[in-house]
Amino acid sequence: MSAEPRHTRVAFDEALRSLEDEVLRMGGMVSGLLQRAVEALQAADRTAAASVVAEDEQVDALHLTIEQRVVALLATQQPMAGDLRVVTSVLGIAIDLERLGDHAEGIARLAPRPGRAPLARSVVDLSYMAGIVRGMLHDALEAFARRDPVLAQAVATRDVTVDALNEQIFRVLLTHMAEQPRRLSEAIDLVMAAMRLERAGDHVTNIAERVVYAATGVLRPLDGSRASA
């Protein structure tokens, strides 16, 4: 026999590539939903919020499709070594993306009811925090596509900023609640939205962990903040 590697698993490679493409597509959808959810909340745009809620169902459906395809690949192709790590990472990443979609939906559902004005952006602007999370997500998926553990590691370190912003926003809103108790409800909604963005950062960190595992075989937490919801 020859020791020269020859690609003999064309069908498997194509199936895996297509699965990865689906994950990247799902990531793009989720990133868009996060942005639109925060905009809908801060602009009190109920129509835009409703479209985020509706589109999250597509994300959920895509997650199930990816899961079914992963199970089929495991059952029929029995991937090993690097292939196995990528396939299991696809599953893990899809789960975290699905949760990210849920957080976008949750934020959209906080959009004020008609007749209730949102708090001014001068009080708290969530779009900056959402931008950091979306940037992390973009780089985590880029790291996955390139199997780049260094980029993935760098993504995880940015979650500290997201956590700090959440804390800062909470303090600002707490002060605002004390000063304007009549706007308590709107302020609490923003606290909850910031908390969801903080959780979203944790899920992106989970994705970065999967990327490191797929690339190196090392599976360990990349920072102290863990996602559980």
């Binding site: 026999m1 590697p5 690609h7």
Partner: peptide, 12 residues
């Protein structure tokens, strides 16, 4: 790398 190629079925 040779182990990886064999167990992932990429050896001819």
């Amino acid at each position: 790398r040779r182990t990886e190629d064999y167990i992932t079925g990429r050896f001819g």
